[in-house]
Design a protein around this nucleic acid. Structure first.
Lengths: 207, 207
DNA sequence: ATAAGGTATGAACCAGGATTCATATCTTCA
DNA sequence: TGAAGATATGAATCCTGGTTCATACCTTAT
């Protein structure tokens, strides 16, 4: 035997992988999925086209990983909110506000992750994203129902409704080309939050 | 001159066009967009591939027309509800219930229209669909706000939220392969409706 | 009946982007 | 240093569906 992958090599490999992933994410983040062609990704990452296939068996897997990575981050943040102390009401509000304001910051990427057409394999990861998000909210809702803060609603359905509500209300303003200001963003976030809280609380929401 | 399109010919043309459109719609309705390849559509309609291009300049236009047609029907129904007599609250409830139950009937088609990936050009028509739907709801909300039934919410945002809420809550159960029963459907519709009403009314909703 | 001009056909063509793979380069280790 | 094994390269290839177009067929009006 005259070669055995050394630790260093492994590290270099990993770095290259990360570089490619990052390049792809950046391309998506400012040109949407269609900007992330394998050739462009490779070029931006400074590697040859074929190299990409040394790390992912197919482009769809690379894309799926992007969605998974980014969404894991977002879900993590929302989850942290859900796990923090505070009343269910406060947590619900914080979760929604946090998600919405982050989405409005990284508009193009958020749009790609939330609404832009992708191929089915990637779509599945996206659905999973929503499901995870909904799951976080569902936990908050359950807690609130037990404590009597929220009425007897089906927490699974309500959670899905909340996710849908803020994503849909966000999509328009997120859409590439639709420019908006900080003022409008704030208003939007307030309205979305208020809507979801009213829906969950059933009255005592801040209207 | 030895030929001028006669009334009869025009009618035949129109019929053929309709046949193609119908074939395409049916294919989408049970296999989703990917089942509606030009060749398959043509075959099902009993015409040659090229004939399709005599009626639409590109496939995307055909697809767009399908979305436009079907969604116009749905929007029409919701609009009728919005225009009927009744309190804003009743109308809002009726609109949501109607939409949801119809979607659950034509599951595959509804899924294709609501959630399945399509190419950008068609996507625009889909967004338009949602916008129209939102518009109907917005009118109801405005009326309710004026009458004091609903709190001071931004009707545009709230309408988007409602559309998003019910579509998202519907998508899971609509997804091809996910089988569900009439009982579950009813429960889902009730929950979605209750959610949206609470969000709009802010208290006196039926919980 | 037939010329003139629509309409239909479907096999061939094409575009665009994902994949491959023979070749070159780089790493390790005796 | 050099053989053996890994990795990287990127031009060539493949694939999938949409689109075209030369040809054949139908209608109409004389």
């Amino acid at each position: 035997m005259a070669y055995r992958q050394t630790e260093n090599t492994a590290k270099r490999l990993a770095e290259k992988r990360a570089r490619i992933l990052k390049a792809a994410r950046e391309l998506v983040a400012d040109g949407g999925w269609s900007a992330a062609q394998v050739d462009s990704v490779a070029e931006r990452a400074g590697v040859a086209t074929g190299t990409v296939y040394r790390h992912w068996a197919a482009k769809a897997e690379l894309c799926a990983e992007i969605v998974a990575t980014v969404s894991a981050r977002e879900v993590g943040i929302v989850k942290a909110v859900a796990d923090a102390d505070g009343s269910p009401l406060e947590k619900l509000e914080a979760a929604i506000r946090t998600f919405a304001s982050r989405a409005l910051r990284g508009r193009r990427l958020a749009y790609a992750l939330i609404a832009e057409p992708v191929d089915p394999e990637v779509e599945m990861v996206r659905l999973d994203y929503r499901a995870r998000l909904a799951h976080c909210l569902e936990r908050i809702l359950r807690e609130g129902i037990m404590r009597g803060t929220f009425p007897r609603l089906d927490p699974a359905v309500a959670a899905a409704c909340i996710v849908g509500a803020f994503m849909e209300a966000l999509v328009g303003p997120l859409a590439p080309s639709k420019g908006t200001g900080a003022r409008a963003d704030r208003h939007l976030i307030d309205q979305i939050t208020a809507f979801c809280l009213r829906a969950s609380v059933g009255g005592e929401g801040k209207a």
